[in-house]
Amino acid sequence: MMLEVENITRSFGQKAVLKGISFRMEKGGVNGIVGENGSGKSTLLQIIVGALKADSGRVAVFGRLGYCPQEALVFSQLTVLEHFQYFAAAYGLPVRGEGEESWQAHRDQLLEHFQFGQYRRERVAYLSGGTRQKLNLCLALFHRPGLLVLDEPYNGFDWETYLRFWDYAERFRASGGSILVVTHLIADKERFERIYNLKNGILQ
């Protein structure tokens, strides 16, 4: 098992957004959560990754977590490569000396796969929205997590990048990784093992 969510509730003021959400994800699973704008999808995701506290309930993550937020949370004055170094330090990966090559090789594969290696020395301030989103996504991937939690991950992607994303996701899943995608729109239902609909604070 990679993720277990048990009876999560969360309210903002008088408004109950999540009313006892429970589900679990097995190794190698790709699950989706859909719902209308404001249905609480991002709130649920933030509770799963630890950015937000639940009023009650329990979340258990088994293994390393990679989280891609909906908005590209990056630093405008740092380059693409500097972001990987900063986040490598955050993940506890070696940033100098021995062992550095292991994650750098994976980073280079990601830059190549998502086709933005040519911008590696560019500051984020000068990148397009789509390229920022690629960086936003890759920062959640390069430390080789076991569970990927992705909030609207292909926002701003062109069709080719969208296909490349699913190509990567398929390989990730085949290697035993699990993916939870939250989106307001699912185009390819066959890519998901299971799709939940979050409506009125309940998963259906």
């Binding site: 630890g50 949370l73 405008s76 900063y86 330090a89 506890g92």
Partner: peptide, 14 residues
């Protein structure tokens, strides 16, 4: 400045 990105670093382990 960019406090949300700093918060992401904290979520990632800082």
């Amino acid at each position: 400045r960019e406090a949300a990105a700093s918060h992401r670093l904290v979520l990632c382990g800082y």
